Simulated scan of single mutants.
Amino acid sequence: MGETSPTTPEGVPERLIRATVGLLAEQGPSAIKARTVASAAGLSTMVVYHHFGGIPELVRAVADHGFTELGTAFSQVPVTEDPVVDLFVLALTCRRQARENPHLYDLMFGLSTRATYRPLESDVRLSGHSPAFRDAYTHVTDACARLVNSGRVEPHAPEVVAAQLWSYVHGYITLELGEHFAEFDDAVGQVLLPMGVNFAVGLGDTRERAEVSHERAVRMYDSVRPALDSSAGA
Rank of each mutant, 00 (worst) to 15 (best):
D142I: 09
Y137I: 02
Y137V: 01
S130P: 07
A98W: 07
T36Q: 11
S39R: 13
R118C: 06
P155K: 07
F181I: 00
L192Y: 00
H51D: 05
R216K: 13
S30G: 12
A61E: 11
Q164K: 07
S231H: 13
R60I: 04
I55F: 09
S5C: 06
G2N: 07
G202I: 06
A61M: 08
R95T: 04
N198K: 09
T68A: 12
G128S: 10
H170K: 09
G171L: 08
H103C: 11
C144T: 11
E154M: 09
D186Q: 05
L23W: 00
Q76Y: 00
T36D: 12
G54T: 09
V48Y: 08
L24M: 05
V59K: 12
T93E: 01
H50P: 00
V12W: 08
A143Q: 03
T116K: 13
H180T: 09
H139A: 10
V79P: 01
K33V: 11
H156R: 11
L16T: 05
D186Y: 02
T116D: 12
Y137F: 15
A187T: 05
L192M: 09
M1K: 11
P56M: 04
H170N: 15
F67C: 03
H139Y: 13
G53V: 05
H139R: 10
E183K: 10
N101T: 05
G204A: 03
M108F: 10
P9Y: 04
E69A: 14
V188S: 01
N101Y: 08
F74T: 03
G233T: 15
L16Q: 06
I17F: 09
L16D: 01
S167D: 05
E57G: 08
A91L: 04
E10D: 13
G178I: 02
L193W: 00
V201T: 09
M46Y: 14
G196W: 01
T206M: 07
H51F: 15
Y49H: 15
V12S: 00
M108P: 01
L107R: 09
P102M: 07
R60T: 13
L175I: 04
T4V: 15
G42V: 09
V21L: 12
E121F: 14
V62G: 03
L120Q: 15
E14L: 15
W166F: 15
E215F: 09
H65W: 11
S223Y: 03
L87P: 00
S75E: 07
V89G: 04
F184I: 00
G66I: 01
P102Y: 07
G2Y: 05
H129E: 09
G204H: 08
R152K: 12
T113C: 08
S112W: 11
A63N: 04
V153D: 02
G54H: 08
Q97I: 06
E215C: 07
T68Q: 14
E183S: 13
E208D: 14
